[in-house]
Amino acid sequence: MSKRILVLLIITILSLLTSLLITLLLGVKAPTSIRDLGKYYVANTIQDTASPEAVTAIVWDYRGLDTIYETTVLYMAIVGGLAISTISRKVQLKTRIGLTGITRTATRITVLLIATIAFAIALHGHLTPGGGFPGGSAMAITAMLIVPVYTLQSLLERGVTSTRLVAARGLALTAIGLVAILPVLRGLEAVTNQKFYPSHIAGMLISGSLWFYNFFEFLAVASGFAAVALYLSIPEELYREELRGGG
C-alpha cells in the first residue's frame, strides 16, 4: 500500500515538473485567434442550416453522412452483443424482490428527472448544446437504474425485452435513413437539409432535418443502450444452464 502511494507521489511530481519545464523552456501558449475554418462555421451556420448551434449543424448537416454511418456502426455493435448473449428459452427469473422502498421512491424521482433532462437535451439539440446522442445516452441511464432497483423480471413482465428494444432501434435507424434519403426523390443530394426541409414548423424553429435527426437518434441510442443493459443483466447462471442443457 505504501509503495503504491510512493509511486503515485513520484508520478505526480514528475508530471508537474515536466509541465513546468515545457511551459517555461519551450514557452507553449494556447492560441488566441480563431482559425479560418472556425470563422466560416461561426459566420455561416445560421444561413446554411437555420441552426444557431454550430456543433449540431456540423454533425448532422455539413458532415451528416459520416454521422449516419457512425450510427450504423453502433447499431451493428449492439446487434453483435445481442447475438453472443442471446438465450434460446424465455428468461424467467425467480427473484422479484428489488431494493427497499426508500431506494424505489428515490429512483422513481431520479428517473423522472433524468428522463425530462434527456428529452430537453435531445429536442433542443439544434438550439443549445446537446443533441440526439447525449440525450439518448442520458435516457438509457434510466434503464440502467431501473434494472437493479426494480429487478429485470419486472421489466420483462411489462414486455420490455432486449429483442424488442433492438427492433425499436432498427425502426429509429430506418427513420434516420428515410430523413436522409427523402431529398433524393426530388433530385437533390442525400442528407440535404435546407433546400428540402422547412426551417420552421408552426412558427417554431426546427432547423430543417436537424430536429428529426436529433429525435430519431435519441430514440435509437436510448433503446440501443437500454437493450445492452437488459441483456447484460441476465444472470450468468442462466447461460450456464443453457450450455449444460445443450440449448
Binding site: 448544446p129 442520458a138 441511464i141 440502467m144 443493459a229 443483466s233
Partner: peptide, 26 residues
C-alpha cells in the same frame, strides 16, 4: 466544449460505469 461535456458525462460516468458494473457481476 459544452456539447462534448454532455456526451462525455452521460457515456463515461453513467453508461460506461454501469456497463462495467454489470460485467463485473458476471
Amino acid at each position: 466544449a459544452p456539447d462534448i461535456v454532455m456526451t462525455y458525462l452521460a457515456v463515461s460516468v453513467g453508461l460506461y460505469s454501469a456497463l462495467i458494473v454489470f460485467v463485473i457481476s458476471k
